[in-house]
């Protein structure tokens, strides 16, 4: 008895030592930065450090909200995200249902694997492809438009099309990959339910609406909560890489502003404040959606 007790202590000790490495990582790269958020309220001076730099209160927040660009930037961030949710979120679900209904296993496999491919392409390459395809002089899309008798459009050289390009290319790149989870959820639905619906006289479409969709609703809701919690986190990389002087009014988003102000210009306090505004909204949204979903769908993340 004694021996085994000692053994448990030893083995727990091993578990704790193992966890030490990730714990230190979490502290250094996640929790120290959270402590560093106070920079948003201080005029940071590297020589004085976090605690001794002078306190400036809400100055940076006031500066951001009184800037001429803040409305544009907040709107760009939110609208790109809302369009992505509105048009992009249903796509993987539709794709999964279509794949599920496809007769013929081979074509299904090919289509499924093919739609994953764009996910593995880097953002830089995707943006490179967009510039090549959408170029007003040589781009293949404009060549096609000319063929149809439409004049060339500078898709990336205007404020008008930036968001559409952003959202559509996102749909192209991620729908296949994001459908994996729905495909797996559809595979988990009891086949007897389909049989029962069939006996009751439900056609294919009715079976999709009354069996497939309810079967994957928990997955949909869970992913939707996660997605809404990220309404204000849109990929820095893609927006930054697609940006140019001609589309800047619709392509500048919070994270690109934080990068330019903080990393490029060294306005650490201001950039941290803008970033903090962003993360607080995200946190609030995810808590709210989770609450709502808990109440109405009885599904919650925690």
């Amino acid at each position: 008895m004694k021996k085994s007790f000692r053994k448990t202590v030893i083995s727990k000790w091993q578990l704790l030592v193992m966890f030490l490495v990730p714990l230190i990582w979490y502290i250094v790269f996640c929790y120290v930065p959270m402590y560093g958020i106070q920079l948003a309220f201080r005029n940071y001076n590297p020589r004085l450090g976090y605690l001794d730099s002078p306190w400036v209160g809400l100055r940076y927040f006031q500066q951001f909200f009184s800037s001429y660009y803040n409305r544009d930037i907040i709107w760009n961030t939110v609208s790109i995200s809302l369009y992505s949710i509105l048009f992009g979120f249903p796509m993987p679900i539709l794709l999964a249902i279509i794949l599920n209904e496809l007769p013929g296993i081979h074509f299904k496999k090919i289509l499924q694997n093919l739609t994953y491919v764009p996910h593995f392409i880097s953002t830089v390459v995707l943006c490179g492809m967009l510039y090549l395809f959408l170029s007003p002089q040589y781009g293949v899309l404009n060549t096609f438009l000319n063929f149809l008798g439409v004049e060339s459009v500078g898709f990336l050289e205007s404020n008008k099309y930036f968001k559409a390009v952003y959202v559509l290319s996102d749909i192209w790149q991620e729908s296949g990959w994001n459908s994996v989870i729905y495909i797996a959820a559809l595979a988990g639905i009891d086949p007897e339910l389909y049989e029962a619906a069939k006996i009751d006289g439900a056609g294919r479409l009715k079976r999709i609406i009354h069996v497939s969709l309810p079967g994957i609703t928990p997955t949909i809701v869970t992913l939707l909560i996660l997605r809404i919690g990220q309404v204000m986190t849109i990929g820095f990389e893609k927006a930054y890489l697609l940006q140019n002087d001609l589309n800047i009014r619709s392509s500048e988003i919070i994270s690109t502003l934080v990068y330019k102000q903080g990393i490029l210009q060294g306005n650490y306090g201001y950039a941290t404040a803008v970033g903090l505004f962003n993360s607080v909204i995200n946190l609030t949204l995810i808590i709210l959606t989770n609450k709502i979903c808990k109440k109405y769908f009885e599904i919650s993340l925690w």
Binding site: P22, Y26, G36, S255, V258, T272
Partner: peptide, 26 residues
């Protein structure tokens, strides 16, 4: 030991973080 708490410590970072600049400074 402290499994629930430590899982929370890890998971919480998915919901909230210091942001680009504080991480950069670290």
């Amino acid at each position: 030991p402290c499994r629930t708490f430590l899982t929370f410590v890890a998971s919480f970072t998915m919901l909230f973080g210091g942001g680009m600049i504080p991480v950069y400074l670290v």
